Computed example of a mutant assay.
Amino acid sequence: MTPVDLSRTVVRAVRCAVEDGELPAAAGVPERVVVERTRPGGVGEYATPVAFQVARTAGRQPREVALVLARRLGGEPGIERVEITGAGFLNFVLAQRSAAELVREVRSRGLRYGYAPDGELRARVVGDAVHRIARSQGLSPAAPAGHAAADLRVAPVARRDGDVVARYGADAAAWAMLSVAPRETPVFSAQLLVQGEDSELFRVRYAHARSRALVRNAARLGFAGEPGDIGADEAPGLVRALADHPLVLEAAAYHRAPEKLTRHLVVTADELLDFQYRVLPVGDEKPSAAHRARLALAEAAGTVLAGGLALLGMDAPDCL
Rank of each mutant, 00 (worst) to 15 (best):
M1V: 07
V14D: 10
V18R: 08
D20P: 03
A26L: 08
A27S: 13
E31C: 02
E31F: 01
R39T: 12
G42K: 10
G42S: 04
G44T: 06
G44F: 00
E45H: 05
A51M: 07
A58Y: 06
G59V: 06
R60T: 03
R60N: 03
R60I: 03
Q61K: 15
V65S: 04
A66D: 09
A66Y: 11
G74T: 13
E80F: 03
F89G: 02
A95L: 13
Q96K: 14
S98D: 05
E101A: 15
E105L: 11
S108W: 08
G110L: 11
G119Y: 01
A123C: 01
A123T: 11
R124G: 01
G127C: 01
A129R: 14
V130K: 13
R132G: 12
A134D: 14
L139H: 01
P144A: 04
P144T: 01
G146A: 12
L152Y: 14
V154D: 12
P156F: 06
V157A: 07
D161E: 15
V164I: 05
W175K: 04
L178F: 11
L178N: 10
V187D: 07
A190H: 07
A190M: 05
V194H: 14
E197G: 11
S199A: 09
S199H: 10
Y206M: 08
R210Q: 14
G222H: 05
G222K: 05
G225M: 11
G228Q: 09
D229V: 08
G231E: 05
A232C: 00
D233N: 03
A235R: 06
A241T: 02
H245C: 05
H245Y: 15
E250R: 13
Y254F: 15
E259K: 05
V266A: 12
A269D: 12
E271V: 07
L273I: 02
Q276M: 07
G283C: 03
P287N: 01
S288Q: 09
A290S: 15
A296F: 04
A298R: 06
A301S: 15
A301Q: 09
G302R: 06
G307F: 08
C319Q: 14
